[in-house]
Design a protein around this nucleic acid. Sequence first.
DNA 1: GCCGTTTTCGGCCCGACTGTTTTCAGTCG
Length: 597
Amino acid sequence: MSFTKAAATMFNEMSQMIELLGGDRFRVNAHAKAARVLKDTTADIEALAEAGDTKALVAIEGIGKGTAGKLIELAQHGNMSEYDELRNQIPKGLMEVLEIQGLGPKTVKLMWDEKGVESIDDLLKIIEDGSILELPRMGQKTVDNIKESIEFLSQQGGRLHIGIAQGVADRFVEMMGQVKGVKRCAFAGSLRRGKETIGDIDILIATSDSDTARAAFTTADGVMKVLANGEKKASIRVAINDESSRWGAEDNTAVQIDLRIVDESCWGSALMYFTGSKEHNVRLRERAIKQGMTLNEYGLFKDDGSDKTPPQQRGEKPVACKTEEDIYAKLGLPMIPPTMREDRGEMELTETPRVIEVADIKAELHSHTTASDGKMSIEESAAIAKSRGFHTLAITDHSQSSAVAGGLSPERLYKHIKAIREANKKIEGITIMPGSEVDILVDGTLDYDDDLLASLDVVVASPHAGLRAKPKQATKRLLKAIEHPMVHIIGHPTGRLIERRPGLDPDWNEIFAAAIEHDVALEINCHWMRLDLRDTHVRAAVDAGCKIAIDCDVHHPYDYDNLRFGVMTGQRGWLTPDRCINTWDASTLHAWLKSKR
DNA sequence: GCCGTTTTCGGCCCGACTGTTTTCAGTCG
């Protein structure tokens, strides 16, 4: 639904433009929220807007009459007059100036008004001739920081993949945990929430010795720059050591790490504050206020609002602060797992769903061996699967059209099936099943004939080529694969690569309905470059009633470790174990697979 | 611009750090 994505981008830009023009900050927030809601939704916004269905649009939280009207205008006339008006007022290059770290709307507006700065190039010019220093509150140090930020911006790609960020965070958590005086240490932020990409890494420590901790932090291996270093907070920029993957190195060369130092007594409230999301925190604080309390990183306090100084500075004793559970309980909420803290309806819960966990997974149904592009033999992969407590492993090498991935001809596949069945006889304690990751060709047909497919225990059908197809064509293609009676799982349904290519964007409601009708599971591919289905798709699929598969798409031994990313993506989609076929006991899973034969 | 277990009008989260200042604005998360 590229209409919705385009609209989301427009609302985001409008939010920034209104802010730049010094508009009402609540209007700024409202536009930003509309953008976020549009980005997340799987509802068919285009159809609703085309039909002029204001009522249905306004029913979506965060979309009011104003936004609905603009969406309808965009769908029916192809443009949004408010957007056009704002665009006419603001030079395009100015939006890029806003991207520079340390420069906000106030400063950018000032540069524009006073010095005619309309682009990063203009900004560099007034830095070079020194006239930037004529602006109020502008000194040499600020100018140096701006220069450095511009340089950094030019070499930095987008956000960091979670699989890369996790490695960096683990290294720092281990290092800081060993510093003298540190009692507790944990990563928080979007990494703890399991977001597919990470802007910066947040690390929280409890210590009695802030100086020693900050000294260790700011002089750690790989530190390129210390961005801030205060009593309670420090920020650094760290080089990313090259991490190899099937898709080559990370685009980004560095990542920012924020360290927050707290007293152990308020660990829970600090962890909660630092985990976010920002939107979730805002909702929690609003809720606290409604209940006559105030919430910050030091705890939840009783507060009549008469005194403006923060309660912790008045020596107030918090109502709760030691654990996150305590604080949620005092706010009348169940414990909300970090992965669900996105302001996507979790504040209305009276009971938290028992979302899926890594320990629930008992089967890997998508794996490759040296027969195609994997790096392990059947036996090697089976040994790892067994050691993880899995009862079933499906070997699903590529099909013939995936030539670059060593896809198997029918003849080779028949031989491979034999080899897998023999390995299964030899190896005790795990069921090894012959399968295939069969290409969904551009017209929606599968890459092997039905006779061959019928001889496989597990069929994962995946799109690999033609990933730029338009939504209508993509829908048709995926529907045809779902309707095929031999297919168990649709593998990485969109074929996206995070921050690299967007992949297919079919009509999700049609896909979900067909998957339910034909009893096909939709995959969450665990590789951190894919995470496909993504979190918002999972949520909509779960709401619709679909079955989900969580698979590591194993090529290397360490691919099994990506399971946690797929599981967190499931949690972000509020997935419960019963709906995930990989959690089923062996007899239930095997019976389900057989039902398609 | 959105929203409503006080409201269809009047609210809309909270604190740390930096660099510039002599008490604080701007930015960030």
